[in-house]
């Protein structure tokens, strides 16, 4: 049995080609086998969420705001409070602190190099 030796580069390209091809084949199979007319049932026409009909809830989808709720408001709460409310607060003078400390760092490096 012969083996195919590929470097990671070509292998990635080769594999993604194979994946694209197989996806295409699966999609074609799906199209040919799927039902032409949609199946309807009276039970599914009215979605219920938590005992309430869908009309109570404004949107059927989750709002984009609430994606990654766990990360943004749970685990990363302190990080995001710092990043959003203290760092990127839109006030010009508060940006200046970061910018000035950066130029201070660069000047310090220049001085260290000069003193050496």
């Amino acid at each position: 049995m012969s083996t195919l030796n590929l470097d990671p580069w070509t292998a990635t390209l080769f594999l993604s080609g194979v994946l694209a091809l197989s996806t295409l084949v699966m999609y074609l199979v799906y199209i040919t086998l799927s039902r032409k007319t949609p199946q309807t049932s009276s039970e599914y026409s009215e979605p219920y969420i938590g005992g309430e009909p869908a009309s109570v809830i404004k949107s059927v989808d989750v709002s984009v705001r609430n994606l990654f709720w766990g990360v943004v408001r749970g685990a990363g709460r302190r990080l995001y409070t710092f990043l959003r409310d203290q760092m990127h607060n839109g006030i010009l003078n508060d940006w200046g602190v970061y910018m000035l400390s950066y130029i201070g760092l660069l000047t310090l490096i220049a001085l260290i190099y000069f003193m050496r």
Partner: peptide
Amino acid sequence: DVRRVARLRG
């Protein structure tokens, strides 16, 4: 006053 010209944030 730049502290009040801060509509863009986050």
